[in-house]
Every structure is written in structure tokens, then in C-alpha cells.
Design a protein around this nucleic acid. Structure first.
Length: 431
RNA sequence: GGCCCUAUCGUCUAUCGGUUAGGACACAAGCUUUUCAAGCUUGGAAGCCGGGUUCGACUCCCGGUAGGGUCACCA
């Protein structure tokens, strides 16, 4: 094919940027990049009642945040003249007609424009699914416009795709049954037929299409942004939902995806959204950009503890145990990091290791009190009298927590002075 | 219900007629400065069912079953 590839994403601003929309956008974007084509963003706001400027902004902002850039931008609400012209011609040519109706619902018109269905068999090729066949008879004479100035979805889509020279339509599988009526309209206006590729859907744990109704905000990109996911990790995850390169690589930057992506390798069946895998991918991306990640971690700590001195050791430690930035806040909130920010409150019962006793613990802690800056000395003593008998009391004295990093890490983070203080305090609590 | 799409470990997937059916997430166990995290090692875990085609089917064909999508004067 030597014609330049042109694809488009056509979201409707009747809701915030949905993860399914983001995923479809990504596939369009990757396809265009791969073949040096053009990627158009078109806002489908023909429904004036449901479309809002806020939703449009949310979609645009979201795509920008994700890093999915488009080459051209259109809004259907600014193109009514074009649709009108086509509509008029369709009516003149006998492909459509003005129909008198008896409204059955509020807001319905007495007069709409219907498409004159030729009732034929439509066969089209889908890049992902192969040949798909439909009989359009059951579609009847469907409505394509409320009036000459108010085109409906199917009409506007077909006209725009034709006018904009769209060569490939890459969209969700939920549109597959829209395809035959759109092809019918194409034939009526003499448009060339683009190549279709219907992507498998992103499913929830019940194998159902992800819906706002069942999942609330978790279907919006914003939700993941707020959680502190990295845009590139999100993209990486979406790409792997329904596609894989055939190699064993799983972590990709956007640029790598651009090079590797191949629509022929897209899966046919729907894929369940697995948050655990997303978190893992995000962690891997966090590590890819270690410097930035650590800066963000520091920022988040400072948000909570403005006056605390933050050493790089605690940042490293947090970096090692988070998957998403919001985990930093969580660690602080549940108090897992309290040993760093506050003096620990010790429970004298917990100081000794389970098969030891407080007399022993006191002895061991006293013994190592003078060598707290000498890991080897502590270790060799611990090996002599039993590691748990020394290491556990030490760790607990320093952290006051059931769970914490190991004593040597703690010693390093806290420094000699603080450590000595805390160990002394523990010794004081023991009989 | 009609029409359409789909079907490999719990999940995402590799396999494009001949493999001990591979990897990743998750899970379990072990190792480590006896807790936690990370890391490393190991382990369990899959071709929906029934017919064909073929020397040989996870792979091709047909049927069934199951799941999903869609049936607006929304997109």
C-alpha cells in the first residue's frame, strides 16, 4: 500500500476519558507511528444534550498526560454544513428520505431523516477478525439525522471518515455491529471503504465490558493518574491487553511500542483488566526512571512531614517497597515508616525473640550497645549466641514495629546517635 | 431472543500440523543480616466438548457448549 495511512480516534465528550478509549487511542497512535501515517483526533459531539466542554477538556488533558499526540484535530459540532450538504444529496438521490413519525418518547421529532435500506448482504474484511458477514435487512430504514442540521452518529462518522481520508478504522469490538450500516451509508455517498480493525474489549473480572455503572471512577484515566501511576506504565499495560510482540519482552517505553507494535498480532478475544499486573508493570517503570521516582517519593514525604530531614536512605527504602506513588502515602498513613519520623513506643514484651527472654535480650543489647556502628561485630556476636536473640531485639528496639527493614538498614538510616538512644531505652524497659 | 464475535495455566499470553505446550503476573516453598519489602531459586497450574481432515492436531473444517458484544430520534 503506497497511500499514506490516516487513522483517527473519535471520542464522544459525554464522559471522562475512559480507559477503553485510551487503549483504542494508543492502538491508533501506534499504528500511525509505525507506518509514518497521520493520526487525527475528532471530537464527536453531535449529541448536544450529552456533550459538555468539561468532558472534552478531560479527554484532551488525559490524552496529553498519556503522551498520545495527534496530528490534526476536529470537532463535529463545527461541521454541520458539511453533513447538511451530504444529507441533502442523499435525499435528492433517493438514498434517504424525510419520514413522518409518531413520537413514542419525550423529545422525539415528528419528522426525521431515515436511510433507505437496500437490504443486502454486507461482507467486510477485518484486519483482526478476517471476513465478517451481515445481512442488513433487520436494520430496517434506520434514522441518520434528526433534521438537516442535526446528523446522528452513523452519518457523521461516515462523512467525516470519507472527508478526512481515513484509511483504517481501528476501534473497539463493540462497534463491529455498527459497521454494516456505516458501509451502507458509504456506498450511498460514494465513499471508499476504509480497512477495519476491531479490537478486543477490556473486560472486568466478570468478563464484562468495563462500565462506569459497575466500576465507578476506576474506568477513568484520571483515577489512575490520581493513584500515582506512570502514564507510560499505563500505556505499556494497555498495549499488552490484547497484543504482544511474540517475544518475551514485557516492559516497553512508548517509543519501543511504536517500533514493535504490529496490528496483525492483536488478539481476537477480550482481555481481563488485571490490576496486579498493572501494579507490577508500574513498578518496573518506576525503576526505569529511578531518579525521577525518588524525587517524587521525596516530594510526597515532604507533603506529610514538612519539617523532617529526609535522607536518601529512607527514600531508597521506600523506593524498594512501592509499586505506585500512592503507596508512599499509604506507608506513611498506616505507620509502617513511623520509626523514621517518630520515636517508637516499645512494648517490653516484644523486645525479646520468641524463644529467648528479657534477661537474655537485655544482656545482648547491652553487649552490642558500644558497637552499633560496626555491623561485623554485631553479626559475629549474633552468630555466637543465636542470630534471632540479638537481631530481633535490636530491630525491635530501633523500630518498635512488628514489621520493618532489617536492623542493619535501620542502624544506617537512624545513625549512631539515635540508634544508641533507642537501644538504651529498650534496655531500660527490660528487667 | 435475533444478529455478530470469541474460546491455551486463576489472569495476560507464545505456539502459525510434529514442542517435555514456553514466558509473565498472581500463588506456594526455600535462600538471604531468623520480622517486612526487594532479590534469587524451586514448585503447582492450561489446550471447553464431540465429530471429521491428516501418518500426525492446541493449531484446519463442521457441530455443540460456554462467555461476550450489539440491537436509540447515544456515540
Amino acid at each position: 500500500m503506497d497511500k499514506k495511512i490516516i487513522v483517527r480516534m473519535a471520542p464522544s465528550p459525554t464522559g471522562n476519558l475512559h480507559i477503553g478509549t485510551a487503549r483504542t487511542t494508543l492502538f491508533n497512535y501506534l499504528f500511525a507511528k509505525k507506518y509514518g501515517g497521520k493520526f487525527i483526533l475528532r471530537i464527536e459531539d453531535t449529541d448536544k444534550e450529552r456533550s459538555t466542554a468539561e468532558f472534552e477538556k478531560n479527554i484532551l488533558d488525559g490524552l496529553e498526560w498519556l503522551g498520545l499526540k495527534y496530528d490534526e484535530f476536529f470537532k463535529q459540532s463545527e461541521r454541520t454544513e458539511i453533513y447538511r450538504k451530504y444529507l441533502k444529496k442523499m435525499i435528492d438521490d433517493g438514498f434517504a428520505y424525510i419520514s413522518q413519525e409518531t413520537p413514542t418518547e419525550e423529545g422525539q421529532r415528528n419528522e426525521v431523516v431515515r436511510f433507505k435500506n437496500p437490504n443486502k448482504k454486507i461482507v467486510f474484511d477485518d484486519l483482526i477478525r478476517g471476513q465478517v458477514e451481515f445481512d442488513t435487512t433487520e436494520l430496517k430504514d434506520f434514522v441518520i439525522a434528526k433534521s438537516l442540521e442535526e446528523p446522528l452518529y452513523h452519518l457523521a462518522v461516515v462523512i467525516d471518515d470519507f472527508e478526512m481520508g481515513i484509511t483504517h478504522i481501528i476501534r473497539g469490538e463493540d462497534h463491529i455491529s455498527n459497521t454494516p450500516r456505516q458501509i451502507l451509508i458509504q456506498e450511498a455517498i460514494g465513499a471508499t471503504r476504509p480497512i477495519y480493525a476491531h479490537l478486543p474489549l477490556i473486560l472486568d473480572n466478570d468478563r464484562k465490558k468495563l462500565s462506569k455503572r459497575n466500576h465507578g471512577e476506576a474506568v477513568w484515566i484520571d483515577f489512575y493518574k490520581k493513584q500515582g501511576y506512570l502514564p507510560e506504565a499505563l500505556l505499556n499495560f494497555y498495549a499488552l491487553l490484547g497484543w504482544n510482540p511474540g517475544t518475551e519482552q514485557e516492559i516497553f517505553s512508548l517509543v519501543e511500542l511504536e517500533k514493535t507494535f504490529d496490528i496483525e498480532k492483536v488478539q481476537k478475544s477480550g482481555a481481563i483488566f488485571d490490576e496486579k499486573k498493572l501494579r507490577w508493570i508500574n513498578k518496573e517503570h518506576l525503576r526505569l526512571y529511578e531518579e525521577n521516582s525518588k524525587k517524587e517519593i521525596e516530594k510526597r514525604i515532604k507533603n506529610k512531614f514538612a519539617n523532617t530531614d529526609i535522607n536518601s536512605k529512607i527514600v531508597n527504602l521506600i523506593f524498594e517497597r512501592i509499586e505506585v506513588y500512592s503507596d508512599v502515602d499509604k506507608l506513611i498513613e498506616v505507620g509502617e515508616l513511623d520509626y523514621y519520623f517518630n520515636e517508637p513506643e516499645l512494648d517490653s514484651e516484644k523486645i525479646a525473640w520468641k524463644d529467648s527472654n528479657s534477661i537474655e535480650a537485655k544482656k545482648h543489647l547491652t553487649k552490642i550497645l558500644d558497637v552499633l556502628d560496626d555491623n561485623e561485630a554485631i553479626m559475629s556476636y549474633a552468630e555466637l549466641v543465636g542470630k534471632g536473640n540479638v537481631l530481633w531485639p535490636l530491630r525491635y528496639a530501633l523500630s518498635g514495629k512488628d514489621k520493618s527493614p532489617d536492623p542493619f538498614t535501620l542502624l544506617e538510616i537512624l545513625g549512631k546517635e539515635k540508634s544508641t538512644e533507642r537501644v538504651n531505652k529498650a534496655i531500660g524497659l527490660l528487667k
